[in-house]
Design a protein around this nucleic acid. Structure first.
Length: 804
RNA sequence: GGACGGUUAGCUCAAUGGCAGAGCAUCGCGUUUACAUCGCGGAGGUUAUAGGUUCAAAUCCUAUACCGUCCACCA
């Protein structure tokens, strides 16, 4: 038998794939457990955060499978839209703005083809037990078809509209974005007090961080009850440099304490400007282009980038004496989460999904779903309550799912593709019939769909991979949506929103949210900080099972700090498993599985089997609430403390000694087998590789399933639950512990023979275990004592011992 | 400014009103026929602070402080 811990465990991955161990079989009996697996965005490599949250998910999936559920567990990748484009630009060192659309799209496809296989392999390597045959990519033809069909459906339901309106805009990526794509960034900037002159020559001061927007200034606002400026309402002021005349209005939206209490309104600096623009029917003056340069109305500053223009305009203001004072401040600005560029609000024509009127329904649906942990629901509610924009789904980019839309060149009417023609790319195809105006010339829509507009359909995408209609119905709503907390506002919310819009049903019954992996100081891991730990290296150094066992140190919703000492502890557990099984099976070589004869069991067998039953019970109770951290603790504790440290030590004399009755020896072996098989099963969701190795090496000849991962978790055997034995036997464990302590304090070896042991206790039942204690602790004679003798060790309140 | 989570041993975390525990680290001991990647043992606590409820509070209530996350503010 191999002595050393087996190294080549990766072979089991091939075994599972070849034998289709994780294949979803619609015909299989048992309740279906369907999982809306997150499709990772294809990037260079899987990072540790992925390994962490996907392992959590996989632990749950494996538990459900071993409980006998028919697990529907697909695996897809998200590979279109802005994130993919950014990756392709970086990988190939190109810019989308210097390339032809066609060439860029081809490059995207080529790059994906190159990097995707090894990217997906990372997921297989962490032991994901998905049915990889239920695979998809969000750019697949079938998915395009579905996404476009759903677009048309919503359009026909009047849930989609196109509108020219102030839109969140990323000048770096040169596209519209959605509210969810925003992030906050603290930046240092200069607050400028700028002098505006009134027509009567008087001056007012306006504080602004964005003087480059002066040419867009269309009005000035003050608070109606601000006494300082009361007489200014209705007057006209002149904008410095650009000299346009603007009216002074009052509005309660002004905060008199901020800046000078006088605000300029530009189209558009922020969301308040949009509000004022509509409420006060202000003119539109656009000074920023879609590429982040200044427009014609910026006059001499035309063509400059925003920040350059700001600098130059400040200089000019100073020169002309319009700046009273300046101070540096730190404030938060909205940036695009994909590129960190400060966003603008531009008036553009975009496609929107109308859903703000459904806020209450979204909240209601959130309450119909079970959240693990429950408090994550609050984050969702917080986000839904704060929604202010309809969902902008159009992106002015190249690589993604096209809108199935054309416009009539003559009358401008919108023409949608026919469902039967999907998927279409309007750039390369045309409507088959004329427009109602008679024209047959059409202009294609060139925008692409927001990537979330497709990934929010994963429940439908994955269920459609199954062909059998009866099964499909059983799969929806899905059982579980697992994900990390960073995309509650994105993927989770959008999926609920789409489910409301299309099906008016919750998409899943339960949601589990994992946290993040942090560096040892508790900070986020990032390349720029240089504190990134690569999961591939961890796996290389310690093994997958170790990484997986470690990730279960965190509960759902909790962050976990990277700690190599803890990884080493998990490594020890894996090695301990191997050694414990190797040792045990030395004594089980000729073991045959007959019926267990309970009357043959010794008390130590009954004791460990009782503890085993309790372990199985607790393990399952915790898992049912997705508290796999506690399930892990439960099995770890049973395995190390009860089984290895105590039971194996206690049972050794019986296994080695040939004088022992045959029945007793058989009972010991049976107990061993029962414990071992249970232990390996309880560990299997956490450590799929080593448990498979152990199963194939030791159990396969006696068990019928071809993989440990096809076995069922042990069920409670009531005949083995025996609290009375536990009570009695805890005294034995206590006495053994006291003798160990004695030997440790006397600085002698545990094996060293003890001459005499006196036990003082009213409980005479302990006598029954004298022989056991003798053989385990190497003691010559044990006697009960009634008289008080000095120098006793107290084992517990009822037992004292003295060793001579 | 709003919402949420947290603060317990050196570190990471348990303990759902009833004797504050575990793993790691530390220290001491031990060649014990599965495992030195091991075993046994010791030390280590005013449970963030201040009040309150209770026979009893880490746990419930109130307030404060600090840490973290999300959102809002962006003149």
């Amino acid at each position: 038998m191999r002595k050393h811990y087996p190294k080549n465990l990766k072979k089991w991955q091939r075994f599972w794939e070849k034998e289709k161990i994780y294949k979803f079989n619609p015909q299989k009996k048992g309740k279906i457990f369907s999982i809306d697996t997150p499709p990772p965005t294809v990037s260079g490599k899987m990072h540790l955060g992925h390994a962490f949250s996907y392992t959590h998910l996989d632990i749950i999936a494996r538990y459900q499978r071993m409980k006998g559920k028919n697990v529907f567990y697909p695996f897809g990748t998200d590979d279109n839209g802005l994130p993919t484009e950014k990756l392709v630009e970086k990988e190939n060192k190109v810019s989308i703005f210097n390339m032809k659309r066609q060439d860029f799209v081809k490059l995207c496809q080529k790059t994906l083809k190159r990097i995707k296989p090894s990217f997906v392999q990372d997921w297989k390597d962490i032991g994901m037990s998905c049915d990889f045959d239920l695979g998809y990519s969000t750019i697949d033809k079938e998915v395009q078809k579905l996404s476009q069909r759903f677009f048309i459906e919503l359009y026909e339901k009047k849930r989609i509209y196109q509108k020219e309106t102030p839109t969140l805009w990323c000048p770096q990526c040169r596209t519209a974005i959605a509210q969810a794509d925003l992030e906050n960034k603290e930046t240092e900037t200069v607050f400028n007090d700028i002098i505006f002159k009134l027509e009567n020559g008087k001056e007012i001061l306006i504080a602004t961080t964005r003087p480059e927007l002066l040419s867009s200034c269309v009005a000035i606002f003050i608070h109606p009850s601000d006494k300082r400026y009361k007489n200014l309402i209705g007057k006209t002021a002149v904008v410095p440099i650009f000299k346009q005349k603007v009216k002074i209005y009052n509005d309660k939206g002004v905060d008199p304490k901020k800046g000078t209490g006088v605000v300029m309104c530009c189209t558009f600096g922020d969301t308040t400007d949009i509000e004022w623009y509509f409420v006060h029917h202000l003119p539109l003056k656009i000074s920023i282009n879609q590429d982040g340069t200044m427009t014609k109305i910026a006059g001499p500053f035309q063509g400059l980038k925003i920040k350059e223009a700001r600098q130059r305009i400040i200089e000019e203001l100073k020169k002309q004496g319009f700046i009273r004072s300046q101070k540096k401040i730190k404030h938060f600005v909205n940036v695009h989460e994909r590129c960190n560029a400060e966003i603008e609000i531009l008036n553009t024509s975009q496609w929107f999904i109308k859903y703000l009127d459904f806020k209450k329904d979204f909240l209601k649906m959130g309450r119909q779903i079970e959240w693990y942990p429950d408090f994550m629901r609050k984050r969702y509610e917080n986000w839904v309550s704060g929604l202010r924009w309809d969902w902008c789904i159009s992106r002015q980019r190249y690589f993604g799912i096209p809108f199935p839309v054309w416009y009539c060149q003559k009358c401008g009417e919108i023409r949608l593709a026919r469902i039967s023609d999907l998927p279409v790319d309007p750039l390369y195809s045309k409507p088959k019939t004329r427009c109602s105006c008679g024209s047959n010339r059409f202009i294609p829509e060139t925008d692409i769909l927001d990537t979330w507009a497709t990934s929010s359909l994963t429940p439908k995408i994955t269920i459609d991979l199954v062909k059998d209609e009866k099964t499909k119905k059983k799969l929806f709503p899905m059982s579980l949506r697992p994900q990390a907390h960073d995309i509650i506002n994105f993927w989770l919310f959008y999926t609920i929103a789409r489910s409301k819009l299309h099906f008016n049903k919750i998409p899943w019954k339960e949601v589990t949210i994992s946290g993040f992996v942090l560096d040892p100081k508790g900070e986020k891991m990032s390349k720029s900080k240089g504190n990134v730990v690569a999961p591939q290296e961890v796996i290389e150094k310690y093994g997958v099972d170790v990484l997986r066992h470690w990730t279960a140190k965190a509960s759902l919703g909790e962050d976990l700090r990277w700690n190599e000492e803890e990884i080493k502890a998990s490594k020890r557990t894996v090695i301990k498993i191997w050694n414990a099984f190797r040792f045990s099976f030395m004594h089980l070589e000729s073991f045959k599985k007959n019926n267990l004869i309970i009357s043959n069991l010794e008390d130590e067998d009954r004791w460990i089997l009782h503890l085993l039953e309790m372990t199985i019970k607790d393990y399952k109770v915790y898992f049912e609430k997705y508290q796999f951290k506690k399930s892990r603790e439960t099995i770890d504790n049973f395995f190390w403390k009860n089984f290895c440290d105590n039971y194996l030590e206690i049972v050794k004399p019986r296994l080695y000694n040939n004088d022992v009755l045959k029945e007793s020896k058989e009972a010991a072996k049976y107990t061993l087998y029962l414990c071992l098989f249970s232990i390996i099963k309880l560990y299997a969701p956490f450590m799929p590789y080593i448990t498979e190795e152990v199963y194939q090496t030791f159990f396969r000849r006696l068990e019928k399933e071809k993989s440990i991962h096809l076995t069922l978790l042990p069920t409670i055997n009531r005949n083995l639950v025996n609290p009375k034995i536990k009570e009695k036997f805890d005294n034995v464990i206590g006495i053994i512990g006291a003798i160990r302590k004695y030997k440790s304090e006397k600085k002698v070896s545990i094996r060293k023979e003890v001459n005499k042991l006196f036990i003082k206790s009213k409980n005479k039942e302990i006598k029954k275990y004298f022989n056991l204690i003798k053989s385990v602790m190497n003691i010559k004679s044990i006697k009960m004592k009634d008289k008080n003798v000095s120098g006793y060790f107290e084992v517990n309140s009822s037992i004292k011992i003295k060793i001579i």
